[in-house]
Design a binder for these strands. Structure first.
Lengths: 245, 245
DNA sequence: CGCCTAATTGACAAATTTCAATGGTGGTGG
DNA sequence: CCACCACCATTGAAATTTGTCAATTAGGCG
């Protein structure tokens, strides 16, 4: 999980209002950089490449991928606008970053970034806080992969996506899933078929309602939350199987 | 994985040779702190506690634990002498730290630590590098939990322990496992029984040889390495099941 | 509008968990 | 120093979950 998420929406205008001013947010560092583009399916960088740049996602969704020798694939995270990639690397990228959708991003040299951070006492805690957030996310993912069943994994994922949408847009009840079922499966440590079955199960239980292939409506966020398995266990909090035979 | 491992053995004497000198290693910061003790099974701090201190393990082994509401337990890492705990936290501990064995450690206030790091341009990159290492470890664990089977998990774990021992003592072929099978199971996302079966399987295959309950000899490190599943797949690299029916 | 690919669904297989019983180690007290 | 006890680990059998394979369906893009 080397990808860093913005915890909050930041005010870009304030951040870089005057030229020459010390940037007040990490994003502001990227503001001067040209915006690059990448097509859906294309690779931003490969695992093992010399880590020359960091990136800030401006638009679209990327996936962080690690591949085994024998072809097994793991997605350790998805990146959304505002997220940074490549901050916590040393020499080489430890994973590949690929575009799920057509995406736009800004690029920043690693050395310049290090220097900018080093030179700015106000930016350092921000970067540190991001690293901490990312550690927390990684740890949650370990908990999910270690001890949650397929249903809990799916619900946790949908819930996290819902919360992300709600951070952007108040009271959103629709979740966009631009990635394929295979991407979701490789993120949750499941197979395509199991992901599909869990979506079917949640649909039948009236918790969600698919809108095309890459979007779904959350009908019962509270149920999703219960089924995600993070909460204290209450006796009437059984998994869905019992709800439809 | 908020616990940070030392990549290298560091020379304490050089590090803090002269009083008043800027510390040249993160460990040197702790050198003045008194050494505390904790009994096997005791808790250093609880998940959710206000995060007031960081710790450096001096002797013994600790485990990092997260517990679900319904009792499911996840161990996200073990800590050994030289490791730091609590660096990448913000307000509260996100996990508990418990002593696997009787352990000795040094304590450091979070605020003082932040200030010391902030004041020292030479320490900052060291801390950053540790965070990066820890991220890499977390990512590897996600790969393990996501896509490795029980045998691969067990071999990966033993191999990592072997490498750690070899870092301390050249050509070590014995691995100490002071934790219980339940600890190992909760670390690898398996059950006690599966861990036990895998140890039996590896023993029967002549890869390892148990020495009491908490120690084992590595007879074929290369086999362990192959079976860990990280390498490129070669045709004669089948799992052990075929080796003993 | 139709094709191509992705997704769903079902039947079956495999891996791991669960449950239950046995075995062994290490620690403690006699 | 030995014996016993408690706990931990091992082993086996059955159950469950998820994966695999194969066939069908259906979105979405041209």
């Amino acid at each position: 999980m080397y990808a860093l998420s913005t915890g909050q929406q930041t005010d870009r205008f304030q951040a870089s209002a005057a030229a020459g001013e010390q940037p007040q947010t990490i994003e502001a560092l990227f503001d001067r950089q040209a915006i690059c583009q990448i097509d859906a399916g294309a690779t931003l960088f490969h695992e093992g490449d010399k880590a020359t740049h960091l990136f800030e996602v401006v638009e679209g969704v990327l996936r962080i991928v690690k591949i085994f020798g024998d072809g097994r694939r793991v997605i350790t995270g998805f990146l959304h606008p505002g997220d940074l990639v490549g901050v916590s690397l040393k020499d080489r990228y430890l994973y590949s970053a690929e575009a799920v959708t057509h995406a736009r991003f800004r690029r920043f040299g690693r050395r310049e970034f290090q220097e900018a951070i080093n030179a700015s006492p106000s930016l350092r805690p921000l970067l540190f806080a991001r690293l901490c957030d990312e550690m927390a996310v990684a740890q949650n993912q370990m908990v999910l992969l270690s001890r949650k069943n397929a249903e809990e994994r799916m619900c946790s994922f949908l819930l996290a996506e819902l919360h992300r949408e709600q951070r952007a847009e108040r009271a959103a009840a629709t979740v966009e899933l631009p990635m394929t079922r295979l991407d979701i499966a490789d993120y949750l440590g499941l197979t395509i078929e199991t992901v599909s079955r869990m979506i079917t199960r949640l649909t039948r239980a009236g918790v969600i309602s698919p809108v095309g292939r890459h979007s779904l409506r959350i009908l019962k966020a509270s149920a999703l939350s219960r089924l995600a398995g993070d909460e204290e266990e209450c006796e009437d909090c059984a998994p869905l199987v019992s709800m439809y035979g």
